[in-house]
Amino acid sequence: MYGTVRHEVRIHRPADEVWALAGDAARLHEWFPGIDACEVDGDRRTVTTTSGLALPELILVTDDRARRFQYRLDVPIVSHHRGTIDVIDLGDGSCLVVYSTEADPRAMALTIGGGTLGALRELKRQMEEEA
């Protein structure tokens, strides 16, 4: 069964600045708590969790103009997955970052979605506190 989860956060930094980090496939581990490393090879990415689990992913979209990044987990337990990060310019020097997770089984959407929520919180902290 299919499930979707969406989290968003407003960050008081320019969209391009946030996109430079959030849109870089090789830097996810810098702001996603629980992911310790990322390796990118063409359209393939492997993220390694804190527990040592290596998760292969396929990069679907990296659109610098729309500031959209999409990928999917490529593991047997997930028959469908799509993660989408959108950085939306709010026109006032701030931006809205939306991290969506679609998954089958649906419980994976909740489970991964919890991780994305923590990631957005960390992204906001880094962008605003370390600016």
């Binding site: 996603f32 629980g34 992911i35 969790t49 919890g114 923590g118």
Partner: peptide
């Protein structure tokens, strides 16, 4: 805290 915690958060 939740049990299902693949990212060890």
């Amino acid at each position: 805290q939740p049990f299902l915690d693949p990212f060890g958060r």
